[in-house]
């Protein structure tokens, strides 16, 4: 496009864009620098400390190699629980996301007093990260995988509902108008007009949320919400770093496998 438009016009009209002011650049740079210095002071960042700490960390890394392969048998139940939590959390979140997405979509819920508050609430839910939700649910339900499932469900509800309502707003209006014209009610409209247009995309969003949830579920155990994360604390606490690296490796392999399968499936769907 650039060459098509740029070449013939350049002779007649000057298309030189005005360069942005120097002062603006300098001010932005100064602002960023100021922010950096203030942040470094606030966090007491010192790279001297880091350099001093590096030998300690190297020692830790050395102790992690080789991983203790025999520990894999012990953590397999934890890994399966992680996948279970991700699966159930994603499913509950996906089911909950459907009505939320419909309320948020301007073309299915034309009332501005409904879809604006709904979107606002959705944005509020989306501000809370999964581990934080898990910490709260642990306070409510006690330790175990159940609070983890709930945390993942709320988190994936936010994610899937947002992606879905944005996709909903871009669907083809033709079928909907045709169905309204022949006198269908709202439920019929959604079942026959919206679902066929969106089913593939929705499945893809759910798979995407599942990928994220498997990663998230692997660390939820740190706050006591079940899954493989419990084992990190235990092994690090007892300074058994070769076991820690076994956990990390196993999680990495499982996550990469699930990512690969899910990406392939999503490519097929769309």
């Amino acid at each position: 496009m650039k060459t098509q438009m740029g070449v013939p016009q350049s002779a007649a009209v000057s298309i030189h864009p005005k360069p942005p002011g120097r002062i603006k650049h300098v001010l932005t740079a100064a602002l960023v620098l100021l922010l950096l210095i203030a942040s470094a002071k606030q966090t007491e960042a010192s790279f001297g400390e880091l350099l001093e700490g590096i030998p300690e960390m190297m020692k830790l890394l050395r102790e992690m190699v080789p991983p203790r392969w025999s520990y894999m048998d012990n953590i397999l139940p934890g890994m399966l629980e992680t996948i279970r939590m991700a699966l159930l959390g994603t499913t509950i979140g996906a089911i909950g996301a459907i009505p939320v997405a419909i309320f948020c979509a301007g073309n299915l819920t034309p009332n501005i007093w409904v879809y604006y508050p709904a979107r606002f609430l959705l944005n509020l839910i989306r501000t809370l990260p999964d581990l934080l939700l898990a910490a709260i649910f642990v306070a409510i339900f006690g330790l175990g995988p159940v609070p983890g499932i709930f945390a993942l469900a709320v988190f994936s509800l936010g994610l899937i509902a947002k992606l879905t309502y944005e996709a909903l707003e871009t669907i083809d209006r033709g079928p909907l108008e045709a169905m309204t014209a022949v006198g269908m009610n709202r439920i019929q409209l959604i079942v026959f007009g919206v679902v066929p247009q969106l089913a593939a995309q929705f499945t893809s969003f759910v798979l995407y949320a599942f990928e994220i949830n498997v990663r998230a579920a692997a660390v939820l155990g740190l706050v006591g919400a079940g899954g493989i994360g419990l084992y990190y604390e235990a092994t690090l606490g007892f300074l058994e770093y070769d076991k820690t690296s076994a956990i990390i490796l196993m999680t990495l392999v499982i996550v990469l496998l699930i990512d690969y399968a899910s990406t392939k499936l999503r490519e097929k769907l769309l």
């Binding site: 007491e44 400390e49 880091l50 700490g53 590096i54 960390m57 830790l60």
Partner: peptide, 13 residues
Amino acid sequence: ALMFIKAVGPTSF
């Protein structure tokens, strides 16, 4: 973060 805590201590850094 758990690993860096081993290196630089439990700080914001």
